Computed example of a mutant assay.
Amino acid sequence: MAGGEQVVRNKQVILKNYVTEGLPKESDMEVREGSIQLKVPEGTKDAILVKNLYLSCDPYMRNCMKKLETSFYVASFETGSPLSGYGVAKVLDSTHPDFKNGDFVWGMTGWEEYSLITAPDRLFQIQLTDVPLTYYTGLLGKFISMLTMLHFSARYFPEGIDIYFENVGGKMLDAVLLNMRVHGRIAACGMISQYNHDRPEGVHNLMHIVGKRVRLQGFLVADFYHLYPKFLEMIIPYIKEGKIAYVEDIAEGLERAPAALIGLFTGRNVGKQLVVVSRD
């Protein structure tokens, strides 16, 4: 081996087939084993080599399993290559001035044991390590991670709903529109109920947006990364004081990652679904 750099096995979760409609299956993915050199290749600038620790399972990844022909806010995964998503990792080697060996980071990484990241512009250095690192796959990593799903009716909201964070779509959105207050606001971040439909369901109560002068706007967390330091200042004390109860559903090992991801769409998980790749 050139230069004496260490080469190790690298287990990966590969996308085998694009899934155009219906629920994805475990057989649409495959766990393979390759190898990787534990060093950034010579001459590669501003890159880092990381050991992945925790991976986040997120509903938006279902859209990445389709062959997207038009511009979208996410890109398709490549068949034959590892899935990618949010995760927590440890830097093993770096040629980037903002990251050094031993740093913990969160952001976009591969669904594999080790990843060479040549464009780490979507990675954040973890400064606070006195809270569980797993929290950076959800609660601390993406601002809003766990929502309580309620049955919306007038008896729960006698005066209507002021603000609704939309992550479901379909019948849930229809029920919410019936119960919005005048000048209410809806931040639309996702519609998990629609991701497995070839033809998405229609929304029938849109006229309530007019009558109640409701503001409905798309929301992508990346638009607000500049507020991340301020968010940490607010949320960390709440965590340490026990004012936030955060539930995680943990799958151990990359072998269980495909089932964990698919479970999001059948209600299998309780709390934030994540995959433990390594605890050291």
Rank of each mutant, 00 (worst) to 15 (best):
M1N: 09
E5V: 11
V8P: 01
V13C: 07
G22I: 10
D28C: 10
K39T: 14
V40W: 03
P41T: 08
G43D: 12
G43H: 08
T44F: 12
T44S: 08
D46N: 15
I48G: 07
L49T: 12
L55N: 01
D58T: 03
P59V: 01
N63M: 11
N63V: 00
K66I: 03
E69Q: 12
E78F: 00
E78K: 14
S81D: 08
L83T: 08
S84V: 07
V88A: 03
K90Q: 14
L92S: 08
S94V: 09
S94N: 09
T95L: 07
D98H: 06
K100Q: 15
D103T: 06
G107P: 06
T109Y: 00
E113A: 11
E113W: 03
A119G: 05
R122D: 10
D130Q: 08
V131A: 09
Y136C: 09
L140A: 06
T148F: 05
M149S: 12
L150S: 09
L150A: 11
H151Y: 06
F152D: 09
S153N: 15
P158R: 12
F165A: 02
V168C: 03
M172Y: 07
L173I: 02
A175T: 15
A175Y: 05
V182Y: 12
V182I: 10
Q194G: 02
H197R: 13
H197A: 04
D198C: 01
P200Y: 05
V203P: 01
V203G: 01
L206P: 00
V210K: 01
G211T: 10
G218H: 03
A222K: 12
F224V: 02
Y228E: 01
P229W: 03
L232Q: 07
I239N: 06
K240A: 04
E241G: 13
G242L: 08
A245R: 11
E248D: 13
I250V: 15
A257I: 09
P258T: 04
A259E: 15
I262R: 02
G263K: 07
L264I: 15
F265Q: 06
T266V: 11
R268K: 15
N269P: 06
N269E: 08
L274G: 01
L274V: 15
